[in-house]
């Protein structure tokens, strides 16, 4: 599918209250265009829950459910199983953030993947708890400032690395795991389309920059989404029925190209930048080794 083939209908309507330049809003809007009307959507507690709908108003035009924070995968599975039993032919998708996926939602996610529930799980990754005001999550990268990894006199930024959730999901041997970035529309659309048309558990992890939390000019959301892939901080791949494939080979440009645009990395020392660069290099070696193996 190409951009021009996308439906004109906005199932995630204008008038939502996301911050200007929100990467998560782009994910929701485009994903709904690909999935279409015949979809039930689940939302845990996250930014999208709040900016996508504050009672009695809502931006989504499809059946919509929120239960709690840490149970997106199992709630989506509950919907999907009930639809099946009631003979309603519809897809179920969960839109969770990185905190609700990598941290508090991990147990329910792993359980649903193990059972191969017939759902699409989208993690829109903005690398921190943005809804509650930019606290670090397991998905926050090394060095990044957040309100719980402040730049102090003794310690500055996050001291540990980003958790690699897509690889954890691959270890579940589910039909489809893919990573995407809003900066690569055709790649993103292909993966949404595959996820839509397959059966069983489908996991899509989408890099979704957040101007408010990352401290950059909102106009740069897509640009940052591209730079992250170019420098290797984020890698685009998919694993379809066990076949792993890198869908965009990174240029492996220096991470400084990527981090210099963002206030959250501004404080980093040369040593910290080297550590981050080392992590990227090592990660890429691991991933490219996987394609050979």
């Amino acid at each position: 599918m190409k951009i021009k083939d996308l439906s004109l209908e906005e199932l995630f309507t204008s008038g939502h209250t996301a911050c200007p330049g929100c990467g998560g809003a782009i994910v929701a809007r485009i994903a709904m265009k690909v999935f279409g009307k015949n979809t039930c959507a689940y939302f845990p507690a996250n930014c999208l829950l709040v900016f996508g709908g504050t009672y009695p108003y809502n931006a989504f035009k499809v059946p919509y459910l929120h239960v709690l924070f840490e149970n997106s995968a199992v709630c989506a599975a509950g919907i999907s199983r009930a639809l099946k039993k009631l003979g309603r032919d519809a897809k179920t998708v969960a839109f969770a953030g990185d905190g609700g996926t990598a941290d508090i939602g991990m147990q329910s996610l792993s359980g649903a993947a193990e059972r191969n529930e017939d759902i699409i799980y989208i993690c829109y990754d903005n690398e921190a708890y943005m809804n509650t005001g930019i606290q670090r999550s397991g998905s926050t990268p090394f060095g990044a400032w957040t309100t719980t990894t402040p730049v102090g006199k003794k310690i500055a930024g996050k001291e540990v690395f980003k958790k690699d959730v897509p690889r954890i999901m691959m270890a579940h041997d589910v039909p489809y795991v893919a990573t995407a970035s809003i900066g690569y529309p055709n790649d993103f659309l292909n993966k949404l389309e595959k996820a839509r048309d397959m059966k069983g558990f489908r996991y899509l992890h989408v890099f979704a920059p957040c101007p408010t939390g990352w401290r950059y000019d909102p106009a740069k959301t897509v640009e940052i989404g591209k730079l992250a892939v170019e420098c290797g901080m984020w890698t685009l791949y998919e694993c379809e029925n066990g076949v792993f494939r890198i869908t965009k080979k990174p240029k492996l440009s220096p991470v400084t190209d990527y981090i210099k645009l963002q206030g959250r990395f501004r404080h980093m020392t040369e040593e910290q930048v080297d550590t981050l660069q080392g992590w990227v290099t090592e990660k890429w070696e691991k991933i490219s080794g996987e394609t050979k193996g």
């Binding site: 309507t13 209250t17 108003y57 809502n58």
Partner: peptide, 11 residues
């Protein structure tokens, strides 16, 4: 109000 009603919120 309800699904799609945010369309009336002129941001």
């Amino acid at each position: 109000v309800g699904p799609g009603s945010f369309i009336e919120n002129k941001t």
